[in-house]
Design a protein around this nucleic acid. Structure first.
Length: 198
DNA sequence: CGACTTTGACCTGCGC
DNA sequence: GCGCAGGTCAAAGTCG
């Protein structure tokens, strides 16, 4: 797309204050979106909230949020979600025709949330179990974008992971939807009690 | 053998 | 209407 679609929605990036606790940050987000997301206090992965830049797609931003423009070459094409009539939308397959290819799709509203981390691994250990269902080379990016889906029954949460072309250590993770279960359902690890479904 | 990953094809939306 | 780009599906391959 040649600089057109990003106009359909805006992306708001929050740099995590150095002294902000994960809980504080989650509360902030809850104020903005009614969502909650707990950053793990410690994990085995290089997930570092202090290096993370969080962004929320909000068609009706709360005043005080810092809007990040599209000067960042990544921003313009990273978030290509449609936000028509002030709502995010995505399409869900609901029925299949004779060959299983054509699908009737329905607009769904799902919360979306993306953040940027500096990590050597693509998939952050967020407490949930993910199955990769696709990978796509995206324009203006040196690195392919990977698509993951939560493996839990009846949980349709998805996430997309891609690396910045300018800095291959920077990983942009976009979550889409809310988990209808706790991370413990997948891992039985007490470490994940800090997590919360969003 | 089941779960997961890979990968090419297919589908849809959007801009021109 | 056409072409492009992103997102998803599903068969085949891989791994534990």
């Amino acid at each position: 797309m040649e600089g057109g679609r990003e106009g359909a929605q805006r992306r708001y990036v929050f740099e995590v204050p150095p002294l902000a606790s994960p809980i504080e940050f989650a509360q902030q987000e809850e104020n903005f979106h009614g969502l909650s997301f707990m950053i793990p206090s410690q994990t085995s992965t290089p997930f570092n909230p202090l290096n993370a830049a969080f962004s929320f797609e909000n068609p009706n931003p709360v005043s005080g949020n810092e809007e990040v423009g599209t000067s960042d070459p990544k921003v313009g094409h990273d978030q290509n979600f449609s936000a028509r009539d002030g709502v995010n939308s995505w399409w869900k397959s609901s029925s299949i025709s004779e060959k299983g290819k054509m699908k009737v799709r329905r607009k769904m509203r799902e919360p979306r949330f993306c953040f940027q981390t500096r990590s050597d691994v693509d998939v952050l250990d967020d407490g949930y179990k993910w199955r990769k269902y696709g990978q796509k080379v995206v324009k203006n990016s040196l690195h392919p974008r990977s698509y993951y889906r939560c493996t839990h029954n009846n949980c349709r949460v998805k996430k997309r992971v891609e690396r910045l072309s300018e800095d291959c250590r920077m990983v942009i993770t976009t979550y889409e939807g809310r988990h209808n279960h706790s991370p413990c359902d997948d891992t039985n690890s007490s470490e994940h009690e800090y997590y919360n479904s969003y």
